[in-house]
Amino acid sequence: MESRILLESTSVKTPFRIDGRKPHEVRSLTCRLGVFQQADGSSYVKLGNTQVLATVYGPHDTRGKSNPEKSIINCKFRLSTFSKSTRRNLHRDIRSIEISNNLTQVFDSAILTELYPHSQIDIYLEVVQSDGSDYAACINAASLAIIDAGIPIKDVVCACSAGFIDNQPITDINAVEESSNGTPILTIGMLPKDKQILSMESSGGIHLDNLNDVMDAAIEGCKSVLFIMKQTILNHIQELKD
């Protein structure tokens, strides 16, 4: 078993992570809206090497029973076969279903579903390349796709992951840090204006005294992500106007 130096301290006090980032640095984020013509709303998010495509279809008629009070949100998450270094060929594995469930819950609370009774909104996420923080990238991509589709939403839902290595809270985990043994990881999806947490998933043990710092690191990461997402949205609207 190799031992990896995930955090290397140089003579200068700030430690560097394995990909050269400082502990509270989020990876470079690029987003694009409206990548597919046929979908009602679509987006593409590239967070470091993690690439996610999101499409939104709806609101449209339900295929089965409909809810007379609000719209049904159907969210499906998929990792494509070549997304990770080992080839996977699973159609419905447990982690994908878990993430699909969580995403459905998040957007069920964020979208104003009472405005569209007897209808259904489909959100599809495809991870083309996975390099850590898949769940956070998916929340961001889905949020942008919903805005592109023009569906009313309470706020721009943003998400970021955080971890704790060598007594240092770090923001935005990549795949190497995720897979190393014993790294606790925390992903928070939130409504930024009210600072309300819609989803929080954590695994690995975080001591209660450090939990506050790790949550703060994730919330700070969300702020940086939100800034870029808002800029992308404004640019897209500007282009549409011209």
Partner: peptide, 11 residues
């Protein structure tokens, strides 16, 4: 005093 997992869900 270690928090091993957190899951928040719902509205």
């Amino acid at each position: 005093r270690e928090i091993t997992t957190i899951h928040i869900s719902g509205k």
